Deep mutational scan, measured.
Amino acid sequence: MTVLPKDIPGDSLKVTVGTANGKPGDTVTVPVTFADVAKMKNVGTCNFYLGYDASLLEVVSVDAGPIVKNAAVNFSSSASNGTISFLFLDNTITDELITADGVFANIKFKLKSVTAKTTTPVTFKDGGAFGDGTMSKIASVTKTNGSVTIDP
Results as ranks from 00 to 15, higher is better:
V59M: 11
N106S: 04
I98K: 05
T94G: 03
T45W: 00
V60Y: 13
A20H: 09
A116T: 08
I93N: 04
V148T: 06
G10T: 09
K110M: 08
S77R: 15
S77C: 15
A35V: 12
T123N: 08
A139Q: 05
G133A: 03
F34Q: 07
S80C: 05
I8N: 11
F75W: 05
K14Y: 14
F75C: 05
L57A: 08
A54Y: 08
V30R: 07
G146W: 01
N21P: 14
V17P: 10
K39Q: 09
D11R: 11
F75T: 02
P24H: 13
S61T: 09
D126L: 15
A38D: 08
K110R: 06
A71C: 11
A79T: 15
V68M: 10
T123H: 10
F86P: 01
S61W: 13
D26R: 12
V43A: 07
D151W: 15
G127A: 03
T99E: 11
A139N: 04
G18A: 12
K41R: 11
G146K: 06
D53N: 09
K143E: 04
S140K: 14
F109L: 05
K14Q: 13
D36K: 13
M40R: 10
D63L: 12
A71R: 10
N81R: 15
D7N: 12
A100V: 05
A71T: 06
L56A: 08
L56Y: 09
T115W: 05
G82V: 15
N74T: 02
K108E: 06
P5E: 06
A38H: 11
I67Y: 12
K137E: 03
P24N: 13
G10K: 10
G25H: 14
P9M: 13
S136A: 02
T27W: 14
G128D: 02
L87P: 03
N70G: 13
T16Q: 10
N21T: 13
D11K: 10
N47G: 03
I107P: 01
V60N: 13
T120E: 13
T99I: 08
G44K: 00
V148F: 04
P31Y: 07
A38G: 14
S76A: 14
T115N: 03
L50N: 09
K137M: 00
N106I: 04
K39Y: 09
G127W: 03
M40T: 12
T19C: 11
T134M: 05
N91K: 06
I138N: 02
A38T: 13
N70H: 13
K112S: 03
Y52L: 11
G65V: 04
S12E: 13
L4H: 09
T16S: 12
S78F: 15
T119V: 02
A139K: 14
F130L: 05
S12T: 13
D7M: 05
G131K: 02
L50P: 05
A129I: 01
V32T: 08
G133R: 09
S136C: 15
P24V: 11
V148K: 00
F34S: 05
F104C: 02
I107Y: 02
V43M: 06
T16K: 14
G133K: 07
V15Y: 05
L97M: 06
K39C: 13
T142I: 07
A129Q: 00
K41V: 11
T118R: 10
T33R: 11
T144C: 05
K6C: 14
A64G: 12
A105E: 07
T144S: 07
Y49C: 05
D63N: 14
S55Q: 07
K117T: 04
S61A: 12
L57K: 10
K137Y: 02
Y49S: 02
L4W: 13
A129T: 02
V73F: 06
D132K: 02
G128H: 03
K41E: 08
T16E: 08
F34A: 06
F75E: 01
F130N: 00
L57Q: 13
F75Q: 07
K110S: 04
S61K: 13
D11C: 09
V15L: 07
D26K: 09
F124H: 04
D7V: 13
P5Q: 05
V122C: 06
I138F: 04
T99R: 06
A72I: 12
T99P: 05
I67K: 09
A54D: 11
K41G: 11
Y52P: 03
V103F: 06
I84G: 01
D126I: 15
D7E: 14
P31V: 08
P121H: 08
G44S: 03
S113I: 07
V3F: 13
T123L: 06
A38K: 11
T16F: 13
G25C: 14
V37R: 07
G51K: 13
D90P: 02
T19N: 13
S55P: 08
N91A: 01
P24L: 12
I98V: 04
P5I: 07
F124A: 02
T2K: 07
C46M: 14
T92D: 00
S113K: 06
D63K: 10
D151M: 15
L56E: 14
T120V: 07
K117L: 04
T27F: 11
N145V: 05
T144M: 04
I84Y: 02
V103P: 11
V122I: 06
V122E: 06
P24F: 10
N21S: 12
L87I: 06
V3Y: 07
V103Q: 05
V28I: 13
G131D: 03
E96L: 00
F48Q: 02
F34L: 10
I93Q: 02
D63H: 13
N91Q: 05
V68R: 02
V30K: 08
G51M: 12
G146L: 04
P31W: 12
T29A: 13
G10M: 11
P152F: 15
S61Q: 14
L111R: 03
G128K: 00
T120N: 09
V30C: 07
I67F: 10
I98R: 03
V30A: 10
P66F: 13
G10P: 13
C46F: 07
F34V: 06
T16G: 07
D7W: 12
N42A: 14
T144G: 07
L87H: 04
G82Y: 15
K112P: 03
N81C: 15
I98Y: 00
A79D: 15
S12Q: 08
Y49Q: 00
F86Q: 01
V32Q: 11
G25M: 14
Y52G: 09
A116S: 07
V43R: 00
N47A: 01
I107K: 00
A20Q: 14
L111I: 06
I84A: 00
V68A: 09
V73Y: 05
T94D: 00
T45M: 04
G146D: 06
G133P: 00
K143S: 02
Y52F: 14
V32L: 09
D126F: 15
N91T: 04
G65Y: 08
F75S: 04
T115I: 14
V43F: 07
G65I: 04
G44P: 01
V73L: 07
G25T: 11
V37N: 12
C46L: 13
S113T: 06
V28K: 13
V68I: 11
P66L: 12
S136R: 08
